[in-house]
């Protein structure tokens, strides 16, 4: 049975179709889930895609965390379901308190769309287990608010728990401790600013993003529990 991926669509999401295509190309069954729904369909993985949910008005992710679907997303994560937030999705996860810290404006106060190198710091998560620690992945970023910040004690805790999953090799946005992606202590919720779905085809410049997507699919219950 193919892994089933649900991509949540908020008004203003714009990387939902790209995420769907990237997962589908890797063999997943994909459904889109409108933000106004109150329940999730039967899925193995939930994706909060990139974009500008609710126009990013007030603050990135600040309104999206109140969308009706978010209660179901939280319950899904609490029950151990695999939840990944990409870019705006990461911002929403932080606003919702599902991941620690916050995303501030880039240090250069400019929107940045470019290829960056990411170092895999923790390859023992369901999101990175197809990689090895220290691997460098080439994946693009595309954000104005990607400058992750957390209080010192929070950062210490993340480090102690090995929750920093990806770091920038050459920090593009001022992010604290070069953080590009983090997970929760249980390792089933993952947020990252770079866009792995944009790096799944050699024709587009890199296939390193597929390492992350393949890790997720290989870890999905449908596949893991299959005989």
């Amino acid at each position: 049975m193919n892994p089933r991926v649900g991509v949540v669509v908020f008004p203003g999401s714009n990387c939902d179709l790209d995420a769907q295509k990237a997962f589908r190309d890797l063999g997943a069954d994909v459904v889109s889930v409108w933000h106004d729904e109150e329940t999730l369909p039967e899925v193995d993985v939930v994706v909060l895609p990139g974009g500008f949910a609710h126009g990013d008005y007030l603050r990135t992710g600040a309104i999206a965390r109140f969308s009706p679907i978010m209660d179901a997303v939280r319950s899904f994560a609490d029950a151990g379901g695999l939840l990944i937030g990409i870019c705006n999705g990461f911002q929403i996860l932080c606003e919702a308190g599902l991941l620690p810290g916050a995303l501030r404006k880039n240090a250069g106060l400019k929107f940045l769309c470019k290829w960056v190198d990411l170092r895999v710091e923790n390859a023992s998560t369901p999101f990175t287990n197809a990689a090895s620690p220290g691997d460098v992945l080439r994946i693009p970023i595309n954000h104005f608010e990607g400058n992750w910040y957390a209080e010192p004690d929070v950062l210490d805790e993340l480090k102690a728990n090995d929750q920093i999953v990806l770091r920038y090799v050459d920090n593009p946005n001022g992010s604290l401790d070069d953080v590009a992606g983090i997970c929760n202590p249980e390792r089933n919720v993952f947020g990252l600013m770079p866009h792995p779905e944009r790096a799944c085809e050699a024709l587009l410049g890199s296939t390193d993003g597929a390492v992350i997507l393949r890790s997720i699919l290989a870890s999905s219950p449908s596949l893991v529990s299959a005989p």
């Binding site: 714009n14 990387c15 179709l17 400019k110 940045l112 769309c113 779905e197 944009r198 085809e201």
Partner: peptide, 12 residues
């Protein structure tokens, strides 16, 4: 670099 030039996965 201030423009998203990659969305839609079509920018060859």
């Amino acid at each position: 670099e201030q423009y998203d030039h990659m969305i839609f996965l079509g920018t060859v």
